[in-house]
């Protein structure tokens, strides 16, 4: 059964040829629409909270990648072996990012003032922050003592 798989696969492809071309064109149109969508998200109010905007754009990208993998790369029509090769790589890739973002990625959100001053911060923000800091520092110090 298994030894005849490759040839079966080919005949399978050939028999459904007409419908495949339709699928490819549909996928192509969807990819274009999704590209426009991520472009729209970047200029929309979703970016007001940057994590929401980034998350949405990454979701759109993941959808696009899935479309390409499933249809252009034929994984939709492949047998079970596709999971052996793609799932572990996918898990490692996602884990790599997911485990680093909470600590390394968000480290600046809990910066001490000293560290923030020495960090590459946009100067407008820093000047205002320092003005606030300068005005609040004596009171906080006096309250401590």
């Amino acid at each position: 059964m298994n030894q005849s798989q490759p040839t079966q696969h080919e005949t399978h492809d050939d028999s459904h040829h007409g419908s495949h071309t339709g699928v490819f064109i549909t996928v192509f149109v969807m990819l274009c629409v999704l590209t426009a969508l991520s472009f729209w998200i970047a200029n929309s109010h979703l970016m007001d909270n940057r994590y929401v905007g980034w998350g949405s754009m990454m979701a759109v990208s993941a959808a696009k990648a899935l479309l390409v993998i499933l249809f252009f790369m034929h994984l939709w029509w492949e047998k079970m072996w596709k999971y052996v090769l793609t799932v572990p790589a996918f898990i490692m890739g996602v884990l790599l990012v997911m485990l680093l973002v909470p600590d390394v990625g968000f480290r600046t959100q809990t910066y001490s003032n000293e560290r923030r001053i020495n960090a590459p911060v946009a100067e407008v923000v820093s000047a205002e922050a320092q003005a606030v800091e300068a005005s609040s520092e004596p009171s906080s110090e006096s309250s401590k003592h």
Binding site: R50, T86, A89, F90, M92, G93, V94, L96, V97, L100, V101, V104, G105, F106, R107, T108, Y111, R116, A119, P120, V121, A122, V124, V125
Partner: peptide
């Protein structure tokens, strides 16, 4: 896939780690 996720992951972590506006 793993090679590029490592690269892209590095970028994402650095991008997330940059304070707002920097």
């Amino acid at each position: 896939i793993m090679f590029f996720t490592a690269l892209i992951g590095t970028y994402i972590v650095l991008r997330f780690g940059a304070p707002q506006g920097s």
